[in-house]
């Protein structure tokens, strides 16, 4: 009896010990976190925005999904996030890992919004071969082309914009390139605003048309800086077109530095603060100078006898 107890205790210790060794290298994801489901649907729009976020935030380390071209970091290299043996994990498990990070993997809990992280996961799921409801992004095969061109047509009356993507085939014929995602970006004070809309993929003739928002403020003349580009550089390299268009709502810019305010330059300090400061300094220092001036009188008073 005694021996059995001892053996069980020993076995238990070994079990606990080996378990902790394994855990020290792997991830520990709480069961409750694993159960989480992606609250966002795997629409092409969501997948596409997930891809954009992925390219900005994750690609530098993880490389392209399924391509295994990750950064060779030591001791643990980043996982190929498109690989099937990674994608067997639940949405919640991936979400948890992205939030918490480990080793060289940063914690994105506070630097990327939850929504954006779910978008990335939706994007990663699109590589999952076992996914039951697989989002069919129509596989399009474009002919091999050279001299790819991006043309832009702006209709200022109804505020639409038409981009045309074309290339020259081996036979020397210029054809439209189909199924390529385009980004329509408007320059704002801090970065770009994406106005691409729901479905910015080129059609069979290489065209994609978008509706420019009706209420976007422009400068005094209503001009805005547009940047139209092929979203993914992987297809034809960096292909973009910049243009100033008059599609915005004419707006007189207010520069908050123009008014008198606490945050203004010295010249734009509020009047009351200038008056208080200068007034206070003048009042106090005139008394000081008065006293200094009075000091001069002191030696003379030595002679007066009263």
């Amino acid at each position: 009896m005694k021996n059995t107890m001892k053996n069980i205790a020993a076995l238990f210790l070994i079990f606990v010990f080996s378990g902790s060794v394994v855990n020290a290298q792997g991830w520990t994801v709480p069961a409750s976190a694993k159960k989480k489901q992606n609250p966002y649907e795997a629409t092409s729009k969501n997948i596409s925005s997930g891809k954009k976020i992925y390219n900005i935030q994750c690609k530098s380390c993880h490389g392209d999904p399924t391509m295994a071209n990750m950064l060779p970091l030591a001791p643990v290299a980043p996982t190929d996030l498109g690989a099937q043996n990674f994608l067997i994990q639940s949405d919640g498990e991936i979400f948890y890992k992205v939030n918490k990070g480990q080793g060289a993997m940063p914690a994105f809990e506070k630097t990327i919004s939850d929504e954006d992280k779910w978008m990335v996961i939706a994007f990663l799921r699109s590589f999952d071969k076992n996914k039951k409801v697989k989002q069919q992004v129509a596989e399009v095969k474009n002919p091999e082309v050279t001299d790819v061109k991006l043309e832009l047509n702006v209709n200022e009356a109804d505020k639409t914009m038409l981009a045309k993507l074309s290339g020259v085939t081996k036979k020397g014929k210029r054809v439209g390139l189909q199924g390529i995602e385009m980004s329509f970006l408007v320059k704002r004070s801090f970065g770009y605003l994406d106005v691409s809309g729901e479905d910015p993929y080129t059609n069979e003739s290489g065209d994609v048309q978008i509706q420019f928002p009706k209420d976007l403020p422009g400068d005094r003349e209503g001009q805005v800086n547009m940047l139209v580009k092929v979203t993914d550089d992987a297809f034809y390299g960096n292909l973009e077109e910049k243009r100033v268009v008059t599609l915005g709502v004419p707006t007189d810019p207010v520069n908050p530095l123009d008014e008198r305010a606490m945050w203004g330059t010295r010249a734009n300090a509020p009047i009351w603060i200038i008056v208080t400061f200068v007034g206070g300094v003048l009042a106090i220092w005139s008394v000081i100078f008065l006293v200094l001036f009075q000091m001069i009188k002191l030696p003379k008073l030595a002679k007066s006898k009263d």
């Binding site: 008394v287 006293v291 009188k297 002191l298 030595a302």
Partner: peptide, 21 residues
């Protein structure tokens, strides 16, 4: 010491300055 010899006038004048300060 500004030529101070403690005449009443000096005394009064000095103390007025000190009070002001």
């Amino acid at each position: 010491s500004l030529g101070y010899i403690n005449t009443p006038a000096q005394h009064k004048h000095l103390h007025k300055m000190i009070r002001t300060l």
